[in-house]
C-alpha cells in the first residue's frame, strides 16, 4: 500500500500577538496508508507553513505530548491515522478545556503545577525505613490492584473529554484522581490521610457526574471513571468514620 492520496487537513490557528480569537486554516496534505495525523501536521510544518506550532515527542503513544482534538475527539495524533478519515477532511484543534497558547499548543500548567502535585503522586510510607531494612515486598495480587491506574502517561486526553473540567476548572479531574487511586491502592502506601482532603472535596471525586467519556478516550485504558467512582464509596465510608476498619492499611 504505497499509493499516495491527498487529504484536506483543517487546523486551528491562533497567534497571541496578532489574533483576537482563533480561526481555521486548510492544507492539502499527501498521505499513504501508514501516515499518522501527527505526520500530517509535520508535513504542513516542513513543506507548507513553518509557523504551525504543536507539541510532539516520541511518535509511539507513550510520551503523551501530542494529544489533539481530531474531528472533535481527543486523540493522540501519533496514534490516529489519516487513512481513517479519507475521503472526508480532518479538523485538528488543541485539546478542549485548556487555554490555547498558540495554534495547537495548550497551557498544561493547571494540571502539572496544581492538580498533579495536590494528590501527592508518590508512595507515602507509614514510616520511613532505612535502606538497610531492604526492599518492600509486594505480591502479584497487591500489584494488580493498582497496576492499571499506574499506566497513565499524563496526556490530558481525559481532561479534554471531561465537560465537568471545562465547566468547573477547579475540578481535580480524571487523571489526577485516577493517579490518587493508584497510590491509595498500593500496599506500600499509607497516604490516605494526607490525600483525603483533596479526594473528599466538592472538587474531588464528588465533582464527577460520571459522564464516562474520560475512560472512553484514554489511550492506556486507565479507566479514570472507575477509579473516581469507586472512591465515592471510600469517601462516604471515610465521612462516616468506617473506612479505617475496612481499609486497615490506610485511613487512620
Amino acid at each position: 500500500m504505497t499509493d499516495t492520496r491527498t487529504i484536506e487537513i483543517e487546523v486551528l490557528r491562533y497567534n497571541p500577538e496578532k489574533d483576537g480569537e482563533p480561526h481555521f486554516q486548510s492544507f492539502e496534505v499527501p498521505f499513504t496508508h501508514d501516515t499518522s495525523v501527527l505526520q500530517g501536521l509535520q508535513y504542513i510544518k516542513d513543506h507548507l507553513d513553518g509557523s504551525l506550532t504543536f507539541r510532539w515527542s516520541c511518535r509511539m503513544a507513550i510520551c503523551g505530548s501530542c494529544g489533539k482534538m481530531v474531528n472533535g475527539k481527543p486523540e493522540l495524533s501519533c496514534h490516529t491515522f489519516l487513512r481513517d478519515y479519507y475521503p472526508g477532511k480532518v479538523r485538528i484543534e488543541p485539546l478542549n478545556h485548556f487555554p490555547v497558547i498558540r495554534d495547537l499548543v495548550i497551557d498544561q500548567s493547571d494540571f502539572f503545577e496544581k492538580k498533579l502535585p495536590s494528590i501527592k503522586p508518590y508512595v507515602v510510607p507509614k514510616e520511613e525505613k532505612p535502606l538497610s531494612a531492604g526492599t518492600y515486598l509486594q505480591s502479584p495480587e497487591q500489584f494488580h490492584k493498582y497496576y492499571q491506574y499506574s499506566q497513565c502517561i499524563n496526556c490530558l486526553l481525559c481532561y479534554a473529554a471531561c465537560p465537568q473540567y471545562g465547566l468547573k476548572p477547579d475540578f481535580t479531574g480524571p487523571a489526577a484522581l485516577a493517579l490518587m487511586h493508584r497510590y491509595n491502592a498500593d500496599s506500600r502506601d499509607k497516604g490516605w490521610d494526607v490525600r483525603s482532603e483533596v479526594l473528599n472535596a466538592e472538587e474531588g471525586v464528588w465533582g464527577c457526574t460520571l459522564v464516562g467519556y474520560c475512560s472512553e478516550v484514554c489511550p492506556k485504558h486507565v479507566d479514570p471513571a472507575r477509579a473516581i467512582n469507586q472512591n465515592k464509596v471510600n469517601s462516604t465510608m471515610d465521612y462516616f468514620g468506617v473506612l479505617k476498619f475496612i481499609m486497615p492499611k490506610g485511613g487512620g
Binding site: Y14, P16, E17, D19, E21, P22, N96, H97, P99, V100, I101, D107, S109, E113
Partner: peptide, 9 residues
C-alpha cells in the same frame, strides 16, 4: 508558566 496571553474557548 510565564505570563502569556492565552485564548480560552
Amino acid at each position: 508558566m510565564a505570563q502569556v496571553k492565552t485564548y480560552v474557548r
